[in-house]
């Protein structure tokens, strides 16, 4: 029983937050901060797979998030709200329970496919040049969407809130919050399982010595494909959740600034540490809210903090250690297969 303490604790926490939100103990502001925290955790941990574990420098994560956000939004809007393309909704509101997760999946899948744009050149090229490719990919996604008038172009795209309204019409509980928490949990769980398997450790082998990895039987191209697609796919999931939290998206919210934010979280937490990235995402979200009073100065202070971090603790808060490495007693409370 003790071995499951952490697992039970996590689910209890999710249930507790949902209940508190349901009875308005947590007001809308805190709920939205919690949801963005979840989205940030997914973004930071998934980018960490590429920038931390694989040692690449991907600086276009926002682009994949954008693909996921738009594709899943398009799905739910077509299915559940009145729109300019099809007119009436395709499906009744009761179908939202299947439709919403499905749309998130489709969005993630689309983002994973978009990840191929970066994954395929990564077979031949590494480092700085690959960084540029990710950067260009980010710009291409943003300017492609800016040019699609049918989904609003630069003005953005909306109508996603109909999905939550649909779900709430059946049962009035904070659905998007619940889905966000489950999505966050699922992503971290997926990544944890991947990087702790012998298969997933091939990714770290690539980062430490790619030639040795290839010659010692690691199919480096396949590993890169998996890492990039998994990473961008999860970014897509984060994008889908983000879009349905806000009920509105525009391309500018996924530009290079967003990608930079995600990188800040990864390097704040420590490369190659999932719990580090997750903690950093929590810290970063809180910091962004706490520093709100600084207004424009916020984005002077945060880079400064990171510069100081690079000078004095460049390995990030956690280095490549996990929480359980720092506090071995934690292991007693969870069993990880």
């Amino acid at each position: 029983m003790q071995k499951h303490t952490v697992t039970i604790g996590v689910f209890a926490l999710i249930a507790l937050i949902a209940v508190l939100a349901q009875f308005n103990v947590l007001d809308a502001y805190y709920v939205s901060v919690l949801m963005f925290m979840g989205v940030n955790i997914i973004l930071a941990t998934s980018l960490n797979l590429v920038n931390g574990y694989m040692g690449e420098f991907s600086c276009g994560h926002g682009g994949f998030m954008c693909v996921g956000a738009y594709v899943s939004s398009l799905c739910t809007v077509l299915m559940f709200s009145k729109n300019a393309i099809l007119g009436a909704p395709l499906l009744p509101p009761s179908m939202t329970f299947i439709g919403f997760p499905l749309a998130l999946l489709v969005g993630s899948f689309a983002a994973a496919i978009a990840g191929l744009v970066v994954a395929i050149p990564s077979f031949k090229t590494r480092g700085d040049y690959l960084a540029i490719i990710t950067l260009a990919a980010n710009y291409i996604v943003i300017s492609a969407i800016n040019n699609m008038e049918i989904i609003g172009g630069p003005r953005g795209f909306m109508g996603m809130s109909a999905t939550e309204v649909g779900m709430k019409s059946v049962l009035d509980i904070p659905w998007v919050l619940i889905f966000t928490m489950l999505g966050t949990l699922g992503s971290v769980w997926l990544l944890r399982r991947f990087v702790s398997s012998t298969l997933g450790k091939g990714v770290s082998a690539i980062s430490q010595d790619e030639i040795a990895a290839e010659i010692m039987s690691v199919d480096t191209n396949r590993m890169k494909l998996i890492a990039f697609m998994l990473s961008s796919g999860l970014a897509g999931l984060a994008g889908g959740l983000y879009a349905h939290i806000l009920g509105y998206v525009n391309p500018q919210s996924f530009d290079i600034m967003r990608s930079t934010e995600i990188m800040v979280m990864v390097y704040l937490g420590g490369m190659g540490s999932l719990s580090g990235a997750a903690l950093a995402a929590v810290l970063f979200t809180v910091l962004m809210e706490a520093l709100r009073f600084l207004d424009v100065w916020k984005w002077v202070v945060i880079p400064l903090l990171l510069i100081l971090l690079m000078q004095f603790r460049p390995e990030g808060l956690m280095g490549n250690k996990e929480l359980a490495d720092l506090f071995p007693k934690l292991r007693k409370f969870y069993s990880f297969k």
């Binding site: 997926l190 991947f194 012998t198 298969l199 091939g202 770290s204 040795a212 010692m216 690691v218 199919d219």
Partner: peptide, 26 residues
Amino acid sequence: WGEMHVLDNIRIAQHYRLGYSLLDCF
């Protein structure tokens, strides 16, 4: 692979006969 312990170094070299898929891993 200098940042992974010796045991992992030896595990990873068995990559070609892992015998399970990504889905199995998840």
